[in-house]
């Protein structure tokens, strides 16, 4: 039975392990910091939700409402979504997406944004399948060569 709910402190080890399984990188400190900022909050403007199947955390999504970033009116940003590889293609990611989208709606925003690497075809394809299209911003960067 799939259950989407706010992340609890006890979920953190599962989230860290899931991220390690997906990315191959250990980022415990980062995830503890993220939980401190987004976990256990009761408002809809910051969300750290987990997808639990029979009590086991199989995915999570994190997002927040950001106002006037890049000059844009308040909108919901998703900055992390992950589903355990063995649970993919089963609708877990869609349920997480819908849950965070509903919370953003409840917070009063009418637009959802995210940003990801263009070679991340899997997640890019997932967001496309949810109806997301390219937005009006262009990301630019440069290397700092120390001069």
């Amino acid at each position: 039975m799939l259950h989407i709910r706010p992340a609890a402190p006890d979920d953190l080890p599962c989230v860290i392990a899931l991220d390690r399984e997906v990315t191959g990188q250990e980022k415990s400190e980062y995830w503890r910091d993220v939980y401190a900022r987004f976990g256990g909050r009761s408002d809809d403007r910051r969300s750290f939700l987990v997808a639990a199947i029979d009590g086991r955390v199989e995915g999570f999504v994190i997002g927040e409402v950001r106002a006037w970033e890049f000059g844009a009116p308040p909108c919901g940003w998703i900055f992390a979504i992950q589903v355990r590889p063995c649970c993919r293609q089963g609708g877990v990611g869609t349920k997480l997406f819908e849950a965070v989208r509903d919370r953003f709606r409840a917070a009063g925003v009418d637009r959802l944004r995210t940003m990801l690497a263009r070679d991340n075809t899997l997640i890019l394809s997932f967001f496309r399948s949810q109806g997301m299209m390219a937005g009006p911003f262009v990301e630019l960067e440069m290397e700092l060569d120390g001069q």
């Binding site: 263009r118 070679d119 075809t121 890019l124 394809s125 496309r128 399948s129 109806g131 390219a134």
Partner: peptide, 22 residues
Amino acid sequence: DEHAAATFRSITLSTMLKLMRA
């Protein structure tokens, strides 16, 4: 070209069919 290729790689026919109905 890299942006265009990433866009074409990320859109499945299933997504296109949804887009056609939207």
